[in-house]
């Protein structure tokens, strides 16, 4: 089976498109050191200017004069072919798998779940990622809210796992320096949620 992908626009950058792919297709994030030949051809002929790998997407930028409606089909075919063989990609030097998880967490914080927290007067920030274990800090209205344990963390973990299956555990702490106890709250192993975030 070929890899299933679809394009999503990048806000504020009409030359770039995020090609969303199944999480875990590529084992690294960032600008690849070497591209598979199918994509390299597009870079060589001046169509594609930049390729960047995210946990569940490949961000591709095209030359300023080009239109995505015109070259989109070629980029898609090249990507599907290139993603069919992950070993043809070379990640940036010195990267490890926790980088993928770290970027996934950052995207989740910047995205829907972060919006939800901020919308409820809370703050959420990444403390540490190590060996598949994620630590985030909760602040503001969320710091001592009992629902942050279950609802929020579950949503958070689902969103991270959707981008990076490597996550083994999510731990939330109250923000350092927040008043009251600074406890470490360990979460129960994740159970599948019945409804998605938007339900």
């Amino acid at each position: 089976m070929s890899v299933a992908i679809h394009p999503e626009p990048v806000a504020g950058d009409p030359t770039a498109v995020r090609w969303v792919m199944p999480a875990g297709t590529l084992p690294f994030v960032g600008a690849p050191a070497a591209l598979p030949p199918e994509l390299q051809t597009l870079v060589d002929d001046g169509t594609v200017t930049r390729v960047e790998v995210e946990p569940d997407a490949v961000r591709v930028a095209i030359a300023a004069g080009r239109s995505w409606r015109v070259v989109g089909g070629r980029v898609r075919s090249a990507l599907v072919a290139a993603l069919g063989d992950a070993s043809a990609w070379r990640g940036p030097g010195g990267a490890d798998r926790d980088d993928v998880l770290r970027m996934a967490v950052e995207q989740v914080i910047a995205g829907d779940v972060g919006d939800y927290v901020r919308g409820h007067g809370g703050r959420i920030s990444l403390l540490d990622v190590r060996g598949g274990r994620v630590e985030v800090a909760l602040g503001g209205a969320c710091a001592h809210c009992p629902s942050s344990d279950l609802t929020l963390t579950q949503r958070f973990e689902v969103a991270v796992r959707a981008r990076c299956p490597d996550v083994t555990e999510v731990v939330t702490r109250d923000e350092p320096g927040a008043s009251g106890e600074t406890g470490r709250r360990r979460l129960l192993p994740l159970r599948p949620v019945r409804r998605s975030a938007a339900g």
């Binding site: 070929s2 299933a4 995505w68 089909g73 980029v75």
Partner: peptide, 27 residues
């Protein structure tokens, strides 16, 4: 409007649908 139009070949469309539904958390 979509930034890039969906593919037209049956297998390509299947891939597009799979990807769209996966990223929309479709069960």
């Amino acid at each position: 409007t979509p930034v890039v139009l969906p593919p037209t070949d049956p297998t390509g469309v299947t891939g597009w649908i799979d990807s769209v539904l996966t990223s929309s958390g479709y069960r």
